[in-house]
Write a protein that binds this DNA or RNA. Structure first.
Lengths: 331, 331
DNA sequence: GTGAAAGCGCTAACAA
DNA sequence: TTGTTAGCGCTTTCAC
């Protein structure tokens, strides 16, 4: 196909070893031959074959990124964070989504063998077993926002529990007592942590208050449903806390269409701080999740593991704090 | 490092060739030995080394995606479209951003050699020369939304010109005569096409109207600046058409803060239909760009080129239509 | 300082 | 049906 190291060697009348040496900056080459080889490379438009080099060195300078989905702001921020940290270290990223079921996830994991030096896995569904089964041994892995590790892998996550707790504290401080919650998908680790935070805070901070929990699935529609249902009730809660912003926005629109004012009639809060949160009216009180930072941290942890791959399993879990963002919707 | 094909062969008491055969589904293996080998693979947890396989077959099943930036909705939609089309074909994607200058862009392009079967390049800045210089010869390439091809490469793009033209037609049909425009970055091909569409439509459809052009750079701030400037004027245009949604949103906020109502005092329109456009008040009239579709098309074109790589250079340019989305902001 | 040659893990003739 | 062997493009000892 293309120009190979052999072509360069032949044209420069040297051995491939010498060409390889200048390629890798090994000092043991005369300035003279080095210049000559460099010139020939230029002239032939030689571009090294990274794949072959990887096979030889057992180093790819790539990290695999396994995401549950490639949709929306969360994902793009994540990639941005990872890529930023990666380019700093001269690494490239191989992205794959785990879209389908366990079957497809397993396939995705397996095709990473020999292509990457490490893996960043974010997967609310994949469990530790699946990983263990399909992961080439000794391949460094960092889990993101996942309960799957079970302590077996290094991980970084957002402190969803504390952030949800803090949000309820804020709502209570605003004078709201009947505080309702819209959950995320039942099998999503993050969503469950947020629910747990809501429950704990309610029990701790609003004595005598009882939980009001609506089921959602992180989609705007599920928020809309809850908003519409609430609008029809005679007795509404003082505040509605959705496990993510999209549901909060859905609820807000449904409520307003029913003539119920936010925050006058009911306070509203979300989670994530997606861009839209700033632009809706009233602007949405929410929790800012440092997504890009999360990705950057994951990559940092990973490269550190790649450095000394034989230090055994690293099961430490890092946690990033999320930040309360108070806007108009919480009253 | 891991378990290799040799290990499997040894354990199964067969040659590596046989193992390779069952790996690749070559029928010429007894059911008996096949089963045996499969069992050994399972037991040893063998995962083929894709890198090595690629070197042998000269096929990576990966496509490189070079993006100008990894920020925001546009990028994530693009990736989603490409990835969706890729997984349909059993391909994986290697993402890299061209962040820095030409230097870095060149480096990014070069490291793709031997890692990918083809390249999707979206780059408002990179020109045809840079590509030609650093691209391994015969590597299939598809350009996205770029003027860089100069007809030398296959490309797919949005018909920015016609969409902008249609938007001006819509604004004119709403009765607006003094229609202003906020440009994008001066070196951005798409931005220039939108400007060209605005100019042509104005000349064709609003006889006697003169162009009112403000400079922007696609950022929300630049829109805010224009909005603020406009707010101070005694005589404002009837309508403001921004070359992208972020600038339109920026302008809208600045105008409203100055007490100028949209669309009563001035009509507003954007371009892209980012999610926020739907949620601002009033909702933004804009042009929906089928970004994911654009990515999917690019990948489709690419794979078709990868199939018959020796058919020479394909310089055909496909164009996707964008769609006018009329909401409240245009009056 | 430079070259010859073995090997990275796999595939694909070619033989048997 | 199965095994032997020569690469794929590169790196890296080990001699010279």
């Amino acid at each position: 196909m293309g120009v190979t190291i052999k072509d360069v060697a032949r044209a420069a009348q040297v051995s491939v070893a010498s060409v390889s040496r200048v390629l890798n900056g090994h000092a043991t080459v005369t300035q003279e031959t080095r210049d000559h080889i460099l010139a020939v490379m230029k002239q032939l438009r030689y571009v090294p074959h990274e794949g072959a080099r990887s096979l030889s060195t057992n180093l790819t300078n790539m990290v695999g990124v396994l995401l549950p989905d490639l949709y929306g702001e969360f994902f793009s921020e994540m990639i941005r964070g990872i890529d930023g940290a990666a380019r700093l270290r001269g690494l490239h990223i191989l992205v794959a989504s785990l879209h389908g079921g366990a079957e497809e996830a397993a396939a995705a994991i397996r095709t990473m063998r020999g292509r990457v030096d490490g893996l960043i896995v974010m997967s609310p569904h994949v469990d530790a077993d699946l990983l263990a089964q399909n992961l080439p041994e000794h391949l460094p892995v960092v889990l993101v926002n996942s309960g799957a590790g079970g302590g077996a892998y290094a991980s970084v996550s957002i402190d969803n529990y504390s952030a949800a707790y803090a949000m309820v504290r804020h709502l209570a401080a605003c004078g709201h007592r009947a505080i309702a919650f819209i959950t995320g998908p039942a099998d999503n680790h993050e969503a469950l942590e947020r629910l747990r935070g809501y429950r704990a805070a309610l029990a701790d901070l609003v004595p005598g208050a009882k939980e009001i929990v609506y089921e959602g699935d992180f989609s705007e529609q599920s928020g809309t449903r809850v908003g519409a249902a609430l609008a029809k009730k005679r007795k509404r809660p003082d505040a509605l806390f959705a496990a993510n912003d999209m549901m909060a926005v859905g609820a807000q629109i449904a409520l307003q269409q029913a003539g119920i004012a936010v925050p006058r009639d009911i306070a509203l809060a979300g989670f994530d701080d997606i861009p839209v949160a700033r632009y809706v009216t009233p602007a949405l009180t929410t929790v800012r999740v440092p997504i890009a930072e999360l990705g950057a941290q994951a990559l940092a942890r990973l490269t550190q593991r790649i450095g000394h791959a034989d230090t055994g399993i690293d099961s430490t879990a890092a946690t990033l704090d999320a930040q309360l963002v108070v806007r108009a919707s919480s009253g």
